[in-house]
Design a protein around this nucleic acid. Structure first.
Lengths: 112, 112
DNA sequence: CAAGTATACCTAATTTTCTTATGTATAAGA
DNA sequence: TCTTATACATAAGAAAATTAGGTATACTTG
């Protein structure tokens, strides 16, 4: 993901989370959705996104379905049953991480 | 940082932030401080921390001062003037990132 | 007093996960 | 016709960790 090269490691979680919200999405759609949600501040790069999707599929968390729309191919991804569980796990893990990160960045709040 | 290999890229920010709070810290002290602040959930690995400290020093953001305490050597790090500015910048950048990440993880809140 | 744990520094090899660059192809708009 | 948008993909390189190893001193415990 571009726009600050932060948070390496959260891309798979983001993908899984979006697919919890929306049953089926294709790669390009995911890039646009993230851009929209963050008012253009996150720009997923294709070089990061596609390998991540392929990896999640290989791990059994996503299934694909190809459709032809307006003469262009779209590859739709959906969560498998395992993917659903993984989504919950990863999101929860990330949220725990963020809570702890806040404790480090803002020590006063956590100890007051 | 261990404990979930998330957030690659936030370690330098954490170090700079801690040195804003506390004038001088040495490496081992930083690992213990982070452990304490997160109730043991973040464990900085030395293989990540020391290279990060060296890099920040090489970039001119930290200065060092070695002390002998109880027969052991401690290398204290402090922010330079540039380091102080960099700390503010990095923390601000990370916080912006976290706000956007929340928008992606929790779309409902951001759009409601 | 020997052994293990804690303190305190360090580096190297490897892995993970990005960015950057490139390639293919179709559709729409200027 | 040329550029932008849509839509997929891979490969080379960089960044930033993990894992594993190394050195050394001090304290605790059996």
């Amino acid at each position: 993901m571009s726009s600050s090269k932060l948070l390496k490691g959260s891309l798979a979680t983001i993908v899984l989370r979006l697919l919890e919200e929306q049953e089926k999405m294709y790669g390009y759609e995911i890039t646009q959705k993230v851009k929209q949600l963050t008012a253009g501040e996150f720009k997923l790069t294709e070089g990061a996104l596609y390998p991540t999707l392929h990896k999640l599929e290989a791990e059994g968390y996503l299934t694909t379905e190809t459709q032809q729309v307006d003469g262009r191919v779209r590859k739709y991804y959906s969560l498998t049953k395992e993917g659903n569980a993984e989504a919950k796990a990863k999101v929860s893990e990330l949220e725990d991480f963020l809570v702890n990160l806040q404790k480090v960045l803002n020590p006063k709040l956590g100890l007051g």
